[in-house]
Computed example of a mutant assay.
Amino acid sequence: MKIAAFEVRDDERESFTDESNRVGVDVELHAECLDPSNVGLAAGCDGVSILGQSHIDAAMIDALADAGVKVVATRTIGYNHIDLNAAKRRGIMVLNADYAPNGVAEYTVMFILLVLRNYKPALWRGQVYDFSLEGLQGRELRNLTVGVMGTGRIGATVIQCLTGFGCRILAYDPHPNPKVAEHAEYVDLETLYAQSDVITLHMPLLDSTFHIINRETIAKMKDGVVLINCARGELMDLDALIDNIEAEKIGGLGLDTVETEGDLIHRDRRTDILTNRGIAYLRQFPNVVMTQHMAFYTDAAVRSMVSCSVDGIRAAIVDGDFRTRIA
């Protein structure tokens, strides 16, 4: 069995070698994204493994099917970069990855604390030996209400982590989890918006959740609300965030992912002329903490993502089984 893996980072190579030896498959590693210019590299492969910057549209699905590919496995939980209808039409199985929710959940709590305690401006001052306190007074999490939008595995783990802080926790999900309800109060979105001091998003990106945080929903929130996004950038309207930070309606942002980040994420752009004005402008505010889409990035998660991809393709082809099947 042969697999072509694309967007392979250096930190993944050892895991790919270990996993291919363990399950007995041949894996060819490519650093570049899978696109129309190099789809020929997949010829003769049973499956391909990708990350989120390889956009597998209908034309790419046709090219992969014509090359004999039977499985597309993305080493991400999200799969909105793959045309599932086209894959189903051509009989290509699509798999996504799975990894423990703890890394993203812990990162989310870290973001909440960084914003509440004004760590970014404190860091700036310390670097120039300014040890003054003016403007750095923070808030204690135990005195606040945190709203968690989405209580799947990651959202539920965030709530579990937050219970130790003694804060009031509100939750929203179309499908409430009885176990989560032991630690959080399920409410409708209107209530969550109106009563939360901090709101953190843990929802998938769907048509129904695109720009769920927008001018209208922000207007329903408390003045000075803190918003956290370690899920998908497109859940939040970038222009609405900028306008409401400027107006001081939003008191702080913790963003690991941002709308329009596609040409920046996981790339070194230090010497490039960047045209993404929205992100450049947003990141300069002292109450906005932004990182490079790395909430997932732990040693355990990387191993799990590679394992799901390689073993998932092998199981789908050899055993007629799969790790996480989408289409």
Rank of each mutant, 00 (worst) to 15 (best):
residue 5 A to R: 00
residue 11 D to H: 10
residue 11 D to E: 14
residue 11 D to Q: 08
residue 14 E to M: 02
residue 15 S to E: 11
residue 16 F to R: 01
residue 21 N to H: 08
residue 25 V to C: 11
residue 33 C to S: 10
residue 38 N to G: 11
residue 38 N to L: 08
residue 47 G to E: 04
residue 53 Q to H: 14
residue 53 Q to S: 12
residue 57 D to S: 01
residue 58 A to C: 06
residue 60 M to Y: 01
residue 61 I to S: 06
residue 61 I to R: 02
residue 65 A to Q: 07
residue 67 A to Y: 02
residue 68 G to C: 02
residue 71 V to M: 02
residue 72 V to S: 01
residue 75 R to C: 03
residue 77 I to M: 04
residue 79 Y to C: 01
residue 88 K to M: 09
residue 89 R to T: 00
residue 89 R to K: 14
residue 90 R to F: 04
residue 91 G to N: 05
residue 93 M to W: 01
residue 100 A to V: 05
residue 106 E to I: 05
residue 106 E to D: 13
residue 106 E to N: 07
residue 107 Y to L: 12
residue 111 F to N: 01
residue 114 L to Q: 13
residue 115 V to Y: 03
residue 116 L to Y: 09
residue 121 P to Q: 09
residue 121 P to D: 12
residue 123 L to W: 15
residue 128 V to P: 04
residue 131 F to N: 12
residue 132 S to L: 12
residue 135 G to Q: 08
residue 136 L to I: 11
residue 139 R to L: 15
residue 139 R to Q: 15
residue 142 R to C: 13
residue 143 N to A: 15
residue 150 G to C: 11
residue 153 R to P: 01
residue 155 G to A: 12
residue 155 G to M: 05
residue 165 F to E: 02
residue 165 F to W: 05
residue 169 I to F: 08
residue 171 A to H: 06
residue 172 Y to R: 10
residue 173 D to C: 14
residue 174 P to S: 08
residue 174 P to I: 12
residue 175 H to S: 15
residue 176 P to V: 12
residue 186 Y to F: 14
residue 187 V to Q: 07
residue 189 L to R: 14
residue 193 Y to A: 05
residue 194 A to L: 05
residue 194 A to Q: 12
residue 196 S to L: 04
residue 197 D to E: 10
residue 201 L to C: 06
residue 204 P to W: 05
residue 205 L to M: 11
residue 207 D to S: 15
residue 210 F to S: 14
residue 211 H to V: 09
residue 212 I to N: 13
residue 215 R to L: 13
residue 218 I to R: 02
residue 219 A to H: 07
residue 221 M to A: 13
residue 223 D to F: 09
residue 224 G to K: 07
residue 224 G to N: 10
residue 225 V to I: 09
residue 226 V to K: 03
residue 226 V to N: 06
residue 226 V to M: 11
residue 232 R to K: 12
residue 235 L to G: 03
residue 240 A to N: 06
residue 241 L to C: 08
residue 243 D to C: 04
residue 245 I to V: 15
residue 246 E to R: 14
residue 253 L to R: 03
residue 254 G to P: 05
residue 255 L to N: 05
residue 259 E to R: 04
residue 273 I to A: 15
residue 273 I to L: 12
residue 277 R to Y: 13
residue 278 G to V: 02
residue 281 Y to K: 12
residue 284 Q to W: 11
residue 284 Q to H: 13
residue 285 F to R: 08
residue 294 M to E: 13
residue 302 V to A: 07
residue 304 S to W: 02
residue 305 M to P: 08
residue 306 V to L: 01
residue 308 C to A: 08
residue 312 G to K: 00
residue 312 G to F: 01
residue 313 I to G: 00
residue 317 I to L: 12
residue 317 I to M: 06
residue 318 V to G: 04
residue 319 D to V: 00
residue 322 F to W: 06
residue 323 R to A: 07
residue 327 A to E: 03
